[in-house]
Design a protein around this nucleic acid. Structure first.
Lengths: 154, 154
DNA sequence: AACAGTAATAGTAATTACTATCAATAAGGA
DNA sequence: TCCTTATTGATAGTAATTACTATTACTGTT
């Protein structure tokens, strides 16, 4: 006898949140989604947006991104792909072209043996300044001694 | 006439924070550093610890890590190296062996041309369960459709 | 050694990005 | 339509960090 799992209801709010995100490839934050959704549902609560983004991500309908800043971002594209994050403004873009997955998978396997971790994936983020930030006069840091992905962003 | 930049004073607090971290390769969080430092300086303020960790990281004496969780971590090893994060307990380890940097550098260059970003680095994190979490009975997620680095950690 | 200028500190309030709680509401099957 | 319970809006709470402020203490100069 398998316990029946709770049905996921298709509420108006959930529907609008999903539709809004599905047409937005800017990798918005939760509050950006909230602002957009409010045009259609002015009374929606921010908590509802957070709750539904989490549920939609768990269901696999959207992807939750953690670009190494304080805010999560959300992506309607659920295929495995890499992102590019601007260290200054936080903009996130899809990576053009594709980096082959297989050599990384081999590295994962070797690592699992070496470290006794159960490795199940990796996260690869390229960081830099987007063209807008460069146009605004921001420049690349001159000297780099450490993995720049770990630098503090402005 | 170049404006003289403010001198960075070597206070007792700063000294103890640096020494404490330099002998701690567990990649501690700010509050873990705070607890350790308090043994020597019971009256030190948490804000002082945060402030100094930031300054030390900016100065390049230590490295600030963002392992994709809510808390920053700190590393006395300022050489470029990769880390391994447990998605469950947040433990961070140095990656054993070395992954060659050069192919990644080539990818960075190609990406810069493609995207018009000023790419200056990348961040590569392997994620999984550490041996302790596996011993405690936690298992790897069965099905993965997306880049697992973006999954919500428990 | 006394002084001036200012970097740094302790203590605490404020902020940010969520996350939990809970009474009221509304899907969706019987 | 009725009933069960998933979901909602409103708001309080939380964790990690950051800002603020009065006070303290270096450091170079007399």
């Amino acid at each position: 006898m398998v316990k029946k799992q709770p049905a996921i209801r298709l509420t108006k709010q959930r529907q609008v949140i999903l539709e809004t995100l599905k047409s937005d490839y800017s990798h918005p934050t939760a509050d950006e989604v909230y602002e957009k959704v409010r045009h259609q549902l002015p009374k929606i609560s921010l908590a509802t947006v957070y709750r539904n983004l989490e549920i939609l991500a768990e269901t696999g309908l959207i992807q939750e991104l953690d670009p190494g800043r304080k805010q999560m971002r959300f992506d309607p594209n659920t295929h495995a792909h890499y992102h590019l994050t601007c260290v200054r403004c936080g903009r996130v873009e899809d990576m053009a072209g594709d980096i082959s997955e297989s050599p990384m998978k081999n590295i994962e396997k070797a690592l699992g043996r070496l470290t006794k971790y159960g490795i199940f994936g990796h996260k690869l983020e390229f960081v830099g300044l987007c063209s807008k930030c460069m146009e605004a006069g921001y420049t690349l840091p001159e000297e780099l001694t450490v993995n720049p992905g770990n630098r503090k962003e402005g």
